[in-house]
Each structure stands twice: as C-alpha cells, then as structure tokens.
Amino acid sequence: MSRVMSFLRQPIVVALALIVLLLYLGELMSPGFASGAQILRLLIVASLLGIVAAGQNVVILGGREGIDLSVGGVVSLSAIIAGNVMNGADIGILPAIAACLVAGAFFGLLNGLGITLLRIPPLVMTLGMLGVLQGLLVVIRMGIPSGQAAPALSRFVTQPLFFGVPGIIWLWVAIGILMAFMLNRTVFGHRIYAIGSNEHAAYMAGVPVRLMRIALFMISGMFAAIAGLCLLGYSGSSFANVGEQYTLTSIIAVVFGGTSLAGGKGGYTGTMAGAFLLVILQGILTTVNIDESGRQMVFGATLLLLMMFYGRGRAMRA
C-alpha cells in the first residue's frame, strides 16, 4: 500500500494525472478540446515552453539559488536575430541557427561569469541581464525590420512531419531523451546533481564547480535561443518582447515537474509534463467564455492550487 502511495506521490505521476484531469475537464467544457488535432496544437505550444524550461531546469538543478530570469530576453532576441538572418529564405536557416546559438551561449556565458567569478546571486545577475537584453531589443528593433521566418521553419513548427506529428514535437521528444540520458547516464549530468545537492562536497570530490555552473547558464541561454527560433517559426514574424512570458512560466513548468528550486533534485521528464500541464491550463482558460480579468484570476488561483501538490517546504521542527 505504501508502495502505491509513494508511486502516486511522484511529481510526474501527479502531473500526468492532472493533465488527464484537465483534458477531461476541457472536453466537458468545450467538446473537441481533447481531440487529437487540438492536443497536437497544445503540444506545439508546450514544446516551445518545454525547450526554454530545459535550460531553466539544469540551472535550477545546479543549486545555489540557481535561476535564470534572462531566458525571456534571450528568447525575444533570438527570434529577432533568426528573423533577420533567414529573412524568409530557407537557405538562411542554418546560419540563423548558428547565430542564435552563439547569442544564447554568449549571454549565458556572461551570466555564468558574473555568478561564479563575482559571486553575484543568480537572481540578481540574470535580472540585470534581462534589463540589458530588453534594452538591446529596443536598439535592434529601431535599426532593422523584424524579419520573416523561412517557410521551411514554419512548416517544421506547424505542419506534420512524421506520422502526422509536427517536427517541433519530435525535436522536443529528442531533447527530452537527450536530457534524460545526460542527467542520468553521463558524468556531466551526475555532476549537476552533485553541485546542486552539496556544492562543497562536489568541489572536494574534484568537480570543477565554477566551470560546471558557467556551462549550465550557457546551456540555458542556448535552449532559450532554440525556443526563440522555433517561436519565430510558430508566429511567422517576431514582435516586441515575444519571449517575455517565458521567464516565469519556465520556472513554474520546472516546479510542476517536481524539480526542487533548492537544486539537486528532480529531472527533465517531469518538467516536460509540467510544461504540458501549464499549456493545457492556459488552453482551457482561453476556450472558456469569460473576461480577461476572470481568466487571470482563475489562472492565478489554479496555479496556487496546483502548487499545493508539489514540493512544499518542510514544517519547522525544533
């Protein structure tokens, strides 16, 4: 019995159960919500969030109050860069991917350097970086038009690729498999958990803690950049601050996936479920016929309710 209970308490089981429940509720409220086509549409949106959350996930797993508030800025920046490099031509896709990854890695590197060398708390460093990125976005937008997505990229994100499933969902699944492999089967992955649960012990065991942490922030920047590129494919052209919403929702997806904000505990599979859960919730709220105000109130209250299922802090004991 206790085995069953502990299985049911696992965050990913909770998230999957909530996903099924929400899909059922959505189907009740507006028939067709849980149809195959609609679920694929929700999965496309979820994969964008999920890719950002992959980077957020490793940063949070790395501990020491690890968090990356700059991801939203990187997503926006990457969408603009991609739009300008490819500018509606398929030939420009590869250079665009390269440019976005370089930009994401660059800002991740800056974050990592500030956090490790100057020992600035991640929250402060990435918050400041978000301000810089937002300023940079204004500069870029004033100087050049926003650019267009290449047709092939838009097809990849919105049209079926194999077995009727769009390419971005396959990409997300591939990222999920890679992340699970990296976290569970590689030295690098084990080191992430090591520095996240006890940085000092990891250091004593010979883990290059600073390099690891810089790498984590660079990974986060690069995932955000990939998401920005895909977001451009999704919307066709980029607009101001498209990525802003991803900053805090990516953190919530990680939390809903059962990764502790204290670091060292959790994984990406749960985060994928968390991202999907969040997107379904938003999807239900947009189909329900209520005001924007009511929608926001219900969304906020539901988020709080759902958080009750996850990693609540321990009660104080003497």
Partner: peptide
Amino acid sequence: LRLQAIVATFATSIFFTGL
C-alpha cells in the same frame, strides 16, 4: 502553506492583476 516564495507570489500576482 509553505509554497516557494518566487512561484507562489508570481501566481498571486496573476490573481491580483486579474482583480
């Protein structure tokens, strides 16, 4: 309720904005 301050107050901020 011992929810994480960052995510919990983000959720309440959505609620307050709705209000």
